[in-house]
Amino acid sequence: MAKLIDEIQLAWNSIQTAQGTSGWNTVAVLPRHPGRFRAGRNFPDLCEALLAGFRTSVISRNEKFPEGLGFHVTRVNSEQDGFVWLALTRSPNGNLELFSAMVSDIVHAILDTGSGDHSLELRAFLGRIRAWQEFMRKGAVPLSAENEVGLVGELTVLEKMLEVGMAPEAAIRAWSGPLHGLRDFELGFGAIEVKTTVATAGLVAKIGSLEQLDDTNCSPLFLGAVKYALTESGQTLPEKISAIRAQLESNPITLSEFDDRVLAAGYSPAHSPQYHRRFSLREIAMLEVGENFPRLMLGNVKPGVISARYEINLEPLLSQDVGLTTALKKLEMI
């Protein structure tokens, strides 16, 4: 990865010293993929950019391109050899080091598809950019202790889904929490919301809205309760991510989509030394949310109440565990 970004940075530096007054000045990079990637600057702004070429037929004229803190994506008004060029450009106030890491990661996401299918490569390109968009929105800093626990819990449920036979492609695409999903996993007409604790006693779930446990238009709906202990023999967050990645290696597209979600959730491999806590699973339960489940939603609060955050003590409800296999069968996922 270092050699790749070094090549791109060298190209950026050469362009900076070149003569130019307006328009794009670009240099081809990655000679093993001739004509597909170019490092560039758009004069007179001179901000660094990566230009990626895709066949004209795979990009819709109405495609909405992501724009985030420190970067933007635009269509370059130039076609060559049947390619449309998309430019990922650093904003003037964008951090160059972070942008360089982003560019390197995105190029690898495209190359790792190994397909030569431009539509799949475009999906990988835009998917990884949107993940970086969300990562930057979260501050591009290591996860808080609470968010680290939350991500471990979601990954645990994902791991268990794979263990009981859910198709990896479906499981990864169902994981919507990192991508602004109302609930952590959206499965068909239903969903699973995951709540995780490392507390030595009790299991209190923080509910973020009146909609989160409302099954009016989302049924069946399950709350996954995950209890962990912090031990010396447990698994760190980076180790858990690596273990799941190993299961997905045979499907580069699904692996790329998993990486997108992990990044969007706020995890970057660059921050892995920060995550030294080790988690040992104590209990996991799937609780079906129904009429008698303790919850607040728009249908059972007084008129005038339009939003709420509240907490539920799940400990007395753990005996009602239906198990993940039953939950996924009810959701028609296995």
Rank of each mutant, 00 (worst) to 15 (best):
L179V: 11
L248V: 07
N292F: 11
H108D: 14
A49Y: 07
S91I: 02
Q212S: 01
H33M: 15
A131W: 09
F125L: 03
N93C: 08
N300G: 00
G68D: 11
A124P: 00
P273L: 12
S176N: 05
H271W: 12
L179F: 15
D45A: 14
L203C: 09
Q16W: 05
F83P: 03
T254E: 03
L210G: 01
A264Q: 01
N292Q: 11
P238H: 10
P303F: 10
R123D: 15
H276N: 13
I106K: 06
I129V: 14
A205T: 13
D260R: 08
A264G: 13
G299V: 01
L314W: 03
V27K: 14
L287R: 04
G290S: 12
L155C: 05
D81H: 15
G177M: 05
A140E: 10
G177V: 03
D214N: 09
V58N: 09
P34W: 06
V198P: 00
I253R: 14
A191N: 06
L314K: 03
E332Y: 04
A145Y: 01
I207G: 11
L314P: 02
H72D: 10
R173G: 01
P34Y: 08
H276Q: 15
T21M: 01
E283V: 00
L69H: 05
E148A: 01
M286Q: 09
I253A: 15
A18D: 10
L158S: 12
L96M: 11
Y267R: 06
A199L: 06
T113N: 12
T56E: 15
V27H: 10
H276T: 15
S280C: 07
D45C: 00
E315S: 12
A2C: 00
L182K: 06
I253M: 14
A101H: 09
S22H: 09
E146G: 07
Q235R: 07
G94R: 04
H108M: 14
A52F: 05
G68K: 10
L162H: 03
A285P: 03
G114M: 02
L213C: 02
K138P: 11
K330L: 08
F83V: 07
